Simulated scan of single mutants.
Amino acid sequence: MRSRKVRDGFEVTGFTGPVCPLVYLSPEGRPELVSADSGRLLRWDVDSGRLAAYFQVPENAANDVLEIKSLVLPDGLVRIAAGDEFGFCLWDGESGLLLSDAVGGDRIYQVAAGVLNDGRALFVGAGVEGVHLWEPVGGRLLSSPLQHLGDVVAVALASLTDGRSLLVTGDYEGVRRWQGEFCEATFGAGIEAPHIDMLTTANLENGRTLIVGVVEEGEAVCCWDAETGQEVRPPISMEGEFVRIAVASVSGRMRLFAAGDEVVRQWDLLSGEPVEEALPGSYVSAVSLPDGSALLATGTRDGKLTTRRLS
């Protein structure tokens, strides 16, 4: 693999196939970057673009690209997690040590992470058998899979203005919200939306949280208020059947990044207006930085990883 400086970031080429990036903030507030390609995880130095560490690979690592998520625990530990056809995998974010492998024995479509209002840190996953919950220190299952009304394929965690936490799930009929110690009780009415493919959440500066979802097999991205379930604005039309999304704040405005058809496009999340130029990529990750800028990372199907700082 070869790394070189590009505009406001760096570019790495030479991956053997698709590459999925993950950017997040360390316990000290520094941006970190991990890439996943063909069952392999690598950590990169964000400033230089140099390879910093290899993660331990599961024995049954699939050739599929893992879509990874990060979680910084209240005590400063960092966890990286992913789901695959065998179950839930968990790594220590600093050492790259594999802490648990194939937990749950279920195919996991999407993983989400967060710290609930009662202080509990949690990973959740959408699986064939239902919704799974894991504790993030060692990856232990917290309960039996939560039975879902439909085939759950997407999950996210959201917070309300009063501090309560919600689990948000997506299926082929729409979005559902859950609360309770193990997210077992419904919250509000279901949000009708055709064929949810992916979910994430956006926390606004006024304390309001939005649910952002890819619908209709990648035809559009919708945005709902997490508390009321009301649609915030008309859907944004997308291009491509495989669409991945990320959100981050740039200069005080929440921005949507959507990757589809090898192109990453940007919009103002609240207004739906297009922002700046398009970038190459089929996978995307973004994180808000303390100085008001954002770090964007994109990955292509032909093996290129790129970062860019946006301000």
Rank of each mutant, 00 (worst) to 15 (best):
D45H: 06
L99N: 00
G190D: 10
L33A: 00
G83P: 02
R50I: 08
V287A: 10
T307I: 01
V250P: 11
T186L: 09
V264Q: 07
M198W: 15
H132N: 05
V263Y: 13
S249F: 15
I191P: 14
E32L: 08
D268A: 09
P235Y: 10
D45W: 03
P58W: 12
R255V: 13
P21I: 01
L279N: 11
L310F: 12
S293A: 09
S237M: 10
V128G: 14
V152F: 01
D47C: 09
V152W: 00
E216C: 15
S3D: 11
P280G: 03
D92L: 04
H195Y: 12
K69H: 08
S249L: 10
G163P: 02
W44Y: 01
E219D: 14
C183N: 07
A189Y: 13
L41P: 03
S143R: 13
P21A: 03
C223T: 13
G127K: 10
L149F: 12
A52P: 08
L270C: 15
W224Q: 02
F55P: 02
V243C: 08
W44Q: 00
V287Y: 11
S249Q: 15
L97Y: 02
W91T: 00
F257Q: 03
T209N: 06
A112N: 08
V78P: 08
D37Y: 07
L142Y: 05
P27Y: 06
R120D: 04
A102R: 09
L269T: 12
K304V: 14
K69Y: 02
S159Q: 08
L66N: 04
L22K: 03
M238P: 03
S144M: 14
S293D: 10
G281L: 02
L99T: 00
G190A: 05
V124S: 05
D171T: 03
D47H: 08
L77G: 13
V103A: 00
N117F: 12
A158P: 07
F10G: 01
F182Q: 14
L73G: 10
A278F: 01
L141W: 09
R140N: 06
N206R: 11
E227C: 12
S95G: 05
W44G: 01
G127F: 10
R164I: 06
G104K: 06
E262D: 14
W224N: 02
V221D: 13
S165T: 05
G87E: 04
D261F: 15
L71W: 02
A126L: 04
P74M: 09
E192C: 15
G14I: 05
G180C: 07
R233F: 11
L160R: 02
S285T: 03
V46A: 11
I191N: 09
I196D: 12
G260T: 13
D37C: 09
D225G: 07
D92E: 13
E173D: 05
D8I: 00
G174Q: 04
I68Q: 00
G281S: 05
